Amino acid sequence: MDNIGLIGTASILVAGLTIAIGSIAPALGEGKALSQALLSLAQQPDEANTIIRTLFVGMALVESTAIYCFVVSLILVFANPFWNYVIAHSGS
Rank of each mutant, 00 (worst) to 15 (best):
A33L: 13
L13F: 13
V14R: 00
N49W: 01
L6H: 11
I24M: 13
P45Y: 05
R53W: 01
A15Q: 00
A60K: 08
L17R: 05
L76H: 04
I19K: 03
C69Y: 00
V71Q: 01
P45Q: 05
Q44Y: 07
I52M: 13
G5W: 03
Q43E: 14
K32Q: 06
A66D: 02
F56I: 15
F56M: 15
A27E: 07
A37R: 01
L38N: 07
Y68A: 09
I51C: 03
S90E: 06
G16R: 02
M1N: 08
N84D: 12
I75W: 03
T18D: 05
H89F: 09
S23A: 11
T50A: 10
D2L: 05
S23I: 05
E47V: 05
R53T: 15
N3K: 14
I4D: 01
M1I: 05
S11M: 02
L55M: 13
L34W: 09
V86N: 03
T50N: 08
G29L: 09
N49R: 12
I4Y: 08
I51Y: 03
S64C: 10
A66N: 05
S11C: 11
N49K: 13
T54C: 03
M1F: 08
P45W: 01
P81V: 10
S73V: 00
A25F: 14
G8S: 12
S64A: 15
A25I: 14
G16E: 04
P81C: 12
D2F: 04
L38Y: 10
G5N: 14
S35A: 15
